[in-house]
Simulated assay, not measured.
Amino acid sequence: MLSKLSAWFVNPRRNPLARLHRNAVASRLRKYGLRYDDLYDPYHDLDIKEALARLPREVVDARNQRLKRAMDLSMKHQYLLDDLQFVVLN
């Protein structure tokens, strides 16, 4: 019973509060040129590591470049330009 409740609570597809939280986090990540999926850590979850291993090399390289750029922008206390935020993510 408790596991079903907790699964509902954190699922953005079912819980509107979780959806609002995901959208708020995604909008903050967009300022650095990141996608919400870029937050998944391959060292923490073996499924994520396997999924990244199955992706084409270009997709993994693009993800790594987004992470590097986000770290660089964060260190400089800057955001990605507004016109580039949507070009990168679409």
Results as ranks from 00 to 15, higher is better:
residue 42 P to S: 09
residue 2 L to K: 11
residue 7 A to I: 06
residue 23 N to P: 01
residue 48 I to F: 05
residue 43 Y to C: 11
residue 46 L to Y: 05
residue 11 N to Y: 06
residue 28 R to A: 04
residue 69 R to N: 11
residue 80 L to R: 03
residue 12 P to G: 08
residue 16 P to M: 00
residue 53 A to C: 03
residue 14 R to K: 07
residue 12 P to C: 10
residue 56 P to C: 10
residue 1 M to N: 01
residue 76 K to P: 08
residue 50 E to T: 08
residue 83 D to C: 07
residue 79 Y to S: 12
residue 46 L to Q: 09
residue 57 R to W: 06
residue 5 L to G: 09
residue 85 Q to A: 10
residue 88 V to Q: 01
residue 86 F to G: 04
residue 77 H to S: 12
residue 66 R to Y: 02
residue 65 Q to T: 09
residue 12 P to E: 04
residue 64 N to T: 13
residue 12 P to K: 05
residue 1 M to P: 05
residue 71 M to L: 10
residue 40 Y to T: 04
residue 10 V to Y: 15
residue 60 V to T: 14
residue 39 L to P: 04
residue 4 K to Q: 08
residue 62 A to K: 14
residue 57 R to V: 15
residue 88 V to G: 01
residue 27 S to G: 04
residue 70 A to T: 09
residue 82 D to H: 11
residue 18 A to E: 02
residue 72 D to Q: 11
residue 51 A to Q: 13
residue 42 P to K: 04
residue 86 F to L: 07
residue 12 P to N: 13
residue 6 S to E: 15
residue 76 K to S: 15
residue 46 L to S: 13
residue 76 K to Q: 15
residue 13 R to I: 04
residue 44 H to W: 07
residue 35 R to P: 10
residue 9 F to W: 00
residue 41 D to R: 06
residue 14 R to Q: 10
residue 56 P to K: 05
residue 32 Y to P: 01
residue 19 R to G: 00
residue 51 A to L: 03
residue 80 L to K: 04
residue 13 R to V: 08
residue 74 S to R: 11
residue 2 L to S: 13
residue 40 Y to C: 12
residue 38 D to K: 05
residue 5 L to E: 14
residue 10 V to D: 13
residue 68 K to P: 02
residue 47 D to S: 09
residue 1 M to W: 12
residue 16 P to I: 06
residue 25 V to R: 01
residue 31 K to H: 03
residue 47 D to H: 10
residue 37 D to W: 10
residue 11 N to M: 08
residue 30 R to Y: 01
residue 45 D to H: 06
residue 22 R to P: 00
residue 26 A to K: 12
residue 9 F to K: 06
residue 4 K to R: 12
residue 10 V to F: 15
residue 84 L to P: 00
residue 35 R to H: 14
residue 40 Y to Q: 14
residue 58 E to T: 11
residue 27 S to I: 02
residue 54 R to K: 14
residue 60 V to H: 02
residue 58 E to C: 08
residue 14 R to F: 13
